[in-house]
Amino acid sequence: MRDRRWDGPGFRHEPPAADDAAGWITGAVPDGWFTGAPRVVVDREEIAIVGRLPEPELPTDATPADRAAAEAGRINQYREETRDRRIAIARQVEHRYRRKVAWGVACGETEELFTNLSAPVMTRLRQPERQVLDTLVDAGVARSRSEALAWCVRLVGEHAEQWLGELRTAMGTVEELRRRGPA
């Protein structure tokens, strides 16, 4: 069935809809944590919450390395100061939406995701596809076939974002039509 996944000895239902997750999370995040509402990205297994921190003030003669170090310091400070509260919010989100939670922040040009789920995905590849992965491993681009496949998926995602966005929109329309059923 479309709405079930294999989970060990039995089946389980997909997690509940998370259409209101961005709003709920924005309300749960304390004022002052971010410069605006956090970006919330939801998939079947995980909800990623990424907020923007204010950029550190630097002297006008600061180098790009100084800026990167200051941004990394700001991110580290935020991560340490908010840890307990982020864990408490994540537990509430995980209970409400039955998905793991990943936290991250952006500061200036630096973006860091603190924790995120790495979900195994089974796939069958024929020799030509395996050779692509092996070439990436042999060239040192990736340490393993698994890492090489993840690299390929990221690359396709970067170069096909507009098309993937249109596809997601179309899938949402189809899902809404299914939900409504025939008139």
Rank of each mutant, 00 (worst) to 15 (best):
R143N: 05
A37H: 06
L58P: 12
D134G: 08
L136T: 01
A21P: 04
L136R: 02
W24T: 15
A28S: 10
A72M: 07
P128R: 14
Q131F: 02
A22F: 02
M122L: 14
W151I: 02
R124T: 12
R85W: 14
E14W: 07
D31N: 12
R52G: 12
D19Q: 05
R154F: 11
Y78R: 11
K100I: 05
E158W: 01
A69Y: 06
R99Q: 02
K100H: 08
R4Y: 10
V156C: 02
V137C: 03
P120F: 04
T60C: 01
Q131L: 05
Y78T: 09
G140C: 10
A142T: 10
D31I: 14
H159C: 00
T110H: 02
A142H: 00
S146A: 08
G73Q: 03
L53F: 00
P182W: 03
G181K: 03
P182T: 00
S118F: 01
I25D: 11
V105R: 10
H95C: 00
W6K: 14
G23T: 04
D66Y: 13
R98N: 13
A70D: 11
E14S: 10
W163E: 09
A170W: 01
V50M: 08
E158Q: 14
R39I: 15
R180E: 06
V93C: 04
R86P: 07
A72R: 01
R12L: 13
E94D: 10
D20W: 00
F11M: 04
S144K: 12
H95L: 03
L133V: 05
L133D: 06
I47R: 10
M171E: 11
I89H: 07
R96V: 12
A160D: 10
E111R: 13
R4P: 12
R4L: 09
I47E: 01
G27M: 08
V174T: 15
